[in-house]
Nucleic acid binder design. Sequence first.
DNA 1: CGAGTGACGGACG
DNA 2: CCGTCCGCCACTC
Length: 120
Amino acid sequence: MNFNERVYRVVSWIPRGRVLGYAGVASLLGSPRAARQVGWALSALENDRREVAARVPWHRVIRSSGQIALQGEPGRGLLQRALLEEEGVLFNGDRVDMRRFCWDFLREDLLVRLRELERS
DNA sequence: CGAGTGACGGACG
DNA sequence: CCGTCCGCCACTC
């Protein structure tokens, strides 16, 4: 499985209504400093097969600053923002409030483990 | 094999 | 809270 496919897999794990920075995706892949490659992989999505692109929520990956990438290109940037807002992600000016909407997968995992512990 | 290329990020002033 | 600079690394040619 090449790098792009691993990116797509991880991105598909981001829940509705949450976002993740490019570096966050890279960290989940085990290459915490490969943020730019994550962006490169997502840009390749548009040339990819439609079935592949359809199951990858690419819009949930944004800059760690909270801004969406490629604001220069009106079409895509606006689409990404619209898709996020549709999921309940709120913008403060031109950026997402990362403290509220960034997917904290670590905390999520800990909560699951705690619940299992209480049940036993 | 080496240089070029980014949907990036963090450091710094 | 800006704008800039530079390191990063998978991929291409």
